[in-house]
Design a protein around this nucleic acid. Structure first.
Lengths: 122, 122
DNA sequence: CGCATAATTCGATGACTGTCTAATCAAGCG
DNA sequence: CGCTTGATTAGACAGTCATCGAATTATGCG
């Protein structure tokens, strides 16, 4: 995970890749993009992400979202994965740790799924 | 995978779930939605999907897209996964098998990632 | 300091997954 | 029919992953 992690961190943050319909992804683009989809590809992580994203200011304390049916260490593990994928940011404020959605990430992923740019057959 | 598969097949096809930012997903919604993200969470699958989606009419023969650096059985395996997740449809026409993007799926996933509906803190 | 609470890290384990080769199925052609 | 080519299925194996309980770190409080 660490090499990929470096690549994710080195991204220009905004526009990783073209829409999936625009052209076929290169191997490297696919690797980077798949890592984000993979992060959302677990039910527990998706619920955690949704909980954070739907909280006021897209920010939530771990204690607010930890009730997803798994142990707290597991919650922590998943939050770490989401953070490594570049989907969440975390910050400690006193007693609690807050996670929030990386601002541009939703738009970027949404752009990937933009439909309708595939050419018609003759 | 089979029980999930049934649920996916039983979906009203169009609108599985609200935007991730709108409210937190239920456990069941998360399970269904995560299955789709998971399907795109592998580099090879993402490239295959992108190849199909960017082909004319969002449709391609296996022989057109099989060059992704893994053996053909592996390609077939991944295409099956994408199909099971509801992202692709397949049809045999004579000698070749064609895969195409399930029409409404891109829009549906895009909707999940719609940003900006999270309420502001007071 | 000593204690309580929030959160993460550690180590282990069972399950899942991506990949391959070999075998099989499907269609077209002579 | 048999043969060729396209594609899937079967079976095996190595690596990854989600999960847990226990231990650890971090903060605040009296």
């Amino acid at each position: 995970m660490s090499k990929l992690q470096e690549k994710v961190a080195a991204l220009p943050a905004e526009p990783c890749c073209p829409a999936l319909t625009e052209r076929e992804l290169t191997a490297e683009e696919a690797e980077l993009t798949a890592a984000m989809f993979k992060a959302l590809g677990d039910p527990v992580r998706l619920r955690l992400f949704s909980k954070v994203a739907s909280h006021p200011d897209s920010e939530a304390c771990v204690c607010d979202i930890a009730d997803v049916g798994v142990s707290q260490p597991t919650v922590s593990h998943h939050l770490k994965k989401l953070k490594e994928a570049g989907l969440l940011l975390s910050e400690r404020r006193g007693t609690w740790v807050y996670y929030r959605v990386e601002p541009s990430i939703l738009a970027a992923m949404g752009r990937l799924l933009t439909p309708g740019t595939a050419p018609k057959a003759a």
